[in-house]
Each structure stands twice: as structure tokens, then as C-alpha cells.
Nucleic acid binder design. Structure first.
Ligand code: MN
Ligand code: MN
Length: 392
DNA sequence: GGGTTGC
DNA sequence: GCAACCCAACGCATA
DNA sequence: TATGCG
């Protein structure tokens, strides 16, 4: 039946302008039939992953069948359905839940807060109000760290499973009192600087769940004041593996006479921040991170990799390449857009061994932790360590 | 999220 | 007054 | 140049 139809349109040569990749020798037909195909994903080179034939579509004109419009409308319908699913439920009498914006006054700035009851973390039920509360709670610890660091924001206006994007240039509706800085190398981007609690509140209302601060401050963007040693578990690596490598990194730093400040990433890894004098280039700070990685690999070759290619990685990848001018990775106290709403939590070295899971500290319990351990990153702020001379 | 556009 | 549409990043590694 | 990576 299908074969018969196809044979009616058979062509001795391929109708494609470029040669098509085929798994087996192919018989061709002219592009005069339209069928529906279900697939998992479209790769960047435009091929379909896991395609499944779903039948002919005689109602579609072959000349119109680019697939583009249908793909777009399907994507939008799915997003609309997701949004409807997270909208605050109507009250019992059937009235629509109130959606009246409120105004919060913070440090003399009046901030309009919208959709406070919108659920941003559906598995946990956490709302935008929870996110705003969290960032106000950590602001005494977070603002000193963020001060004058250009930020890349990662908003999730429809919750952690919805559309998200990176944002360097502040949006057009940003209040005028929000401080920003334009990178001379990117004249189009006015980066937000979160130098006060009010700005954090505004960012949280914007659903900027994740905050990516630079490793250099705006007044000297070419000179980082921290090196980041990023421990990234490859597929299959465990939290115990991460902890073991962290301890080796600590030993390597000790040998070099350097102090590092560990934090959970909130996801699966650990970041170690090494505060340095603002006199080195990113090339130099990157070289230092690489050296730490190499020394760690010498001590623990089974578990440490510096391999860029993901498929070749085993164990823990020490991502020294994060040490570049405008990189973007979640900063300390940033919430992570995953189940449990974990945060990137500064740690004491002696806590790591007994820390049972990488996402132990969350948007909800972090405030209690800060009451208990205080400002673990504060001591790093003015610490202008010299990097050891690289070996010849 | 919020500004803009279109009914 | 609404709902739909639109926009919101980038540098560097490697083959 | 194209893709992988974060
Ligand atoms: Mn990482
Ligand atoms: Mn929206």
C-alpha cells in the first residue's frame, strides 16, 4: 500500500540538492507526498532525532510542507499548556485568583511585585514570593560579594520548566535607580550591578532565579579578583568522587600556600574560589587553575580529568576554562533552577566530608544555615593572594 | 516579565 | 480589556 | 567554518 503509493512517485535520481546520508542503499521518489513525522528533537544541523513515521497527510500541499509553521505552533501550544498548569488555582467560589500587583518599599525604592503566588518550582510548590524572600534573606551576605560585578541573569518567567534565557543587557523596563555598567568590549550590553538588596528584589521579581557574576569587577574588567576551580562531575561520577577531588584540590592549594573557598554548586559539583590580587590577567588566572588541575590529576589520575570533550571524560572534570573574561556560571548563593531549589552554598572545608548530598542547602533552609555558620565568604573579600610563579 | 500590537 | 506576539548571550576549544 | 561546551 504505502510502497505502492511511493512507487507511483518513484524517481531514478535523488531529488535533494545535496547528497543525503542514508543507512542503506535508497530508492528515491519525487517530493510530491507529505507525511507526518514524530521526533524527539531537532539537532542544530537540522536533522531529526528518533523520527517515527505517523502516516500520510493528503490535506497538506507538498509545496507548503516545510514543517516550519507546524513546528512553531506546536512549540507555542506546549508552552501555553505549561503556563496554564502553573497558574495559581482559582478559589473555591470559582473566582479567578487575585493578581493584583503589590508594591514593596526597599531601601527607599518602590518595587512593583507581580504574580507573587506563581509557582516557579512545581515539584516543591515554591512561588515567586519564596524566591524574593530568599534573596532578601541572603542579601547581607550576597551583596558584598556581588558588589560591582557585572551580572548575567537567567530568568525563568514561566517557572523552572518553562522558557528561560541568559540576559546580559538589562531589560528596557529596568528602573532607573538600578546600577548598570556597559562593557566597552560589548557596547550593546548594560550589565546589571546588584549593589543593594532592592536590586536583588527587583531581579527576583523578574524571575532571575540564577545569577552569574563575573570573576572581575567593573572598574578593572581585565583583572579577575578570583580564580575559579570548577569541579564538574562527568556522567556516572558520584558525589563521593566530587568530595574526594575537592579534598585533593585543597591539599594542592595547601602545598602552594594558597587559600581556597569551597561552595556547592547546588547541582552536582563543587566550586573552589581563590581570591587573588587584581594584577593578573585571565590568561594567568586560567593557567593557575590548569596547574591546580594538573597537580590534582597527578595525585588522583583515576578520578581527575582535564579533557574538554565530554564523551572522553571520566570522573571529575576540572574546568579551568571557566576563568575567562565574560564567562557565566552560577555564583555563590545563587538559586539553581532544579527540583528542591538548591542554592550554591559556601562551605567550610571540614564540612565537605560529612555533606551527604550536593543539593542539601536550598532556597528554604539556607537562612537557618546562615544563622548557624555566618558569612563564610566574607574573609575572602579583601584577600589579595599572589599566584605562585608558574614552573619554567 | 512586560511592552507592543491587534481585535 | 484581552490575548497573542515578541524579545531577552556569548567566548573559546577543537576538528 | 561548524559544532561542542558551559
Ligand atoms: Mn561547572
Ligand atoms: Mn510571560
Amino acid at each position: 500500500d504505502l510502497l505502492k503509493v511511493l512507487e507511483e512517485h518513484e524517481s531514478p535520481t535523488s531529488p535533494f540538492a545535496t547528497e543525503a546520508r542514508t543507512n542503506q542503499p535508497a530508492r528515491w521518489c519525487l517530493p510530491e507526498l507529505v507525511c507526518e513525522v514524530e521526533y524527539a528533537e531537532i539537532t542544530r544541523d537540522g536533522t531529526l532525532r528518533h523520527p517515527t513515521y505517523r502516516g500520510l497527510r493528503t490535506d497538506v500541499d507538498p509545496r507548503e510542507a516545510t514543517g516550519e509553521e507546524r513546528r512553531e505552533s506546536a512549540r507555542k501550544a506546549q508552552e501555553a499548556a505549561k503556563r496554564a498548569a502553573i497558574a495559581p488555582v482559582a478559589s473555591e467560589n470559582g473566582e479567578k485568583a487575585a493578581r493584583v500587583p503589590s508594591v514593596l518599599e526597599v531601601e527607599g525604592k518602590r518595587i512593583k511585585l507581580t504574580n507573587l503566588e506563581k509557582v516557579l518550582f512545581p515539584e516543591d510548590g515554591y512561588t515567586k514570593a519564596d524566591l524574593i524572600r530568599y534573596y532578601t534573606e541572603v542579601s547581607p551576605f550576597l551583596v558584598p560579594w556581588l558588589r560591582d560585578r557585572p551580572l548575567t541573569l537567567k530568568p525563568f518567567p514561566d517557572g523552572i520548566h518553562g522558557t528561560h534565557f541568559y540576559q546580559k543587557n538589562k531589560p528596557g523596563f529596568t528602573p532607573e535607580w538600578i546600577k548598570s555598567w556597559t562593557d566597552p568590549r560589548e557596547p550593546e550590553n548594560a550589565y546589571v550591578l546588584a549593589n543593594d538588596m532592592a536590586t536583588l528584589v527587583w531581579m527576583a521579581n523578574y524571575t532571575a532565579i540564577e545569577i552569574h557574576p563575573r570573576l572581575a569587577r567593573a572598574d578593572d574588567p581585565e583583572k579577575p579578583d578570583n580564580v575559579m576551580i570548577d569541579l564538574d562531575p562527568a556522567e556516572g561520577a558520584t558525589w563521593d568522587d566530587v568530595k574526594e577531588v575537592a579534598h585533593v584540590v585543597k591539599a594542592v592549594l595547601d602545598d602552594l600556600g594558597i587559600v581556597g573557598f569551597p561552595k556547592t554548586t547546588g547541582s552536582r559539583g563543587i566550586h573552589v574560589l581563590v581570591p587573588i590580587a587584581r594584577r593578573y590577567t585571565f590568561e594567568e588566572s586560567r593557567a593557575f587553575a590548569l596547574r591546580v588541575g594538573q597537580l590534582a590529576r597527578e595525585r588522583l589520575p583515576k578520578l581527575v580529568t582535564l579533557e574538554f570533550s565530554k564523551s572522553k571524560r571520566r570522573g571529575i572534570y576540572i574546568d579551568y576554562l571557566q576563568n575567562t573574561r565574560a564567562k557565566s556560571t552560577a555564583g555563590p548563593y545563587s538559586v539553581r533552577p532544579i527540583r528542591r531549589a538548591p542554592v550554591s552554598a559556601p562551605l567550610r572545608w571540614d564540612e565537605i566530608a560529612s555533606l551527604g548530598r550536593p543539593d542539601a542547602f536550598t532556597m528554604i533552609n539556607m537562612s537557618a544555615r546562615l544563622d548557624a555558620v555566618g558569612d563564610l565568604l566574607g574573609p575572602s573579600l579583601g584577600l589579595a593572594q599572589k599566584l605562585p610563579k608558574p614552573p619554567a
